[in-house]
Amino acid sequence: MIIPAPRALIAEDEPLLAAALRHELGQAWPELEVAASVGDGLSAVREALALQPEVLFFDIRMPGQSGLEAAAELVDAWPDGKAFPALVFLTAYDQYAVQAFEAQAVDYLLKPLQAGRLQKTVARVQQLLAARSAAAPLSETTLAQLRSLLGAGLSPATGAAPAGGLLRFIQAGHGSRIEMVPVDEVLVFEAADKYVRVLTAAREHLIRTPLRELLAQLDTQQFWQIHRGTLVRASAIASAVRSESGKLTLQLHGRPEAFAVSRLYAAQFRAM
């Protein structure tokens, strides 16, 4: 049996740097086939799903969405039964990212690229690809790392209380009227296009404040992130149900609908 040549996807918004990475990879790993090179975070997810390559090289700062956000989206959208690609992030300078990468479950490359460093990364990725079986699930270390990277991007003052204090009321506009919704009554914040849906037991409000801004002003002990676009009140969670396909959903006290849990955040719902 012949093992097919591994394929890679490059997502890098600066054309010269993308071309250079492709060129350097050609020398460091001649068997690797660069299946596509894209310049933004949205195309990165689309092409990764379409091509299903073995290795992903994602720049962290990209238009559309960041490389981290693209990776988080891929984790959820990746088809079951198919091994998740080896992830390598590219960054010019990102102290939080570099700190979080120390564990090195996923690798990173600092720009300007240096041939010797690239060679190490290639060796590590080759080792990873050789070691794992075809249907290996994503390791929890990789997920934890991705979570912390996304978190690091959210609040520069890691772990510190928000400067403006915790949010106590949501000011929700209804036409010309502003309703004051106590945060204590809110069960769910859900990102929906350009808005955030604020759900209480009885009502639904739309606000324009982005979820990432809300997240910085909420008590993360009270509100758990269960998806890129969903925060739920931890005390309102009634049950977590795993479907046959492995997808996890939450039922809340006081809301009829179910809420999908991302693979990235599924670890907190294991039985004790």
């Binding site: 600066e14 010269l16 740097l17 071309a19 250079a20 700062r61 010019a92 300078y93 990102d94 600092l110 720009k111 300007p112 690229l113």
Partner: peptide
Amino acid sequence: EPHMMFNTLANLRVLIAT
């Protein structure tokens, strides 16, 4: 800004060769 500086240098490094 470090992002600007290092990305600029990365581009320069590529151009020097090509």
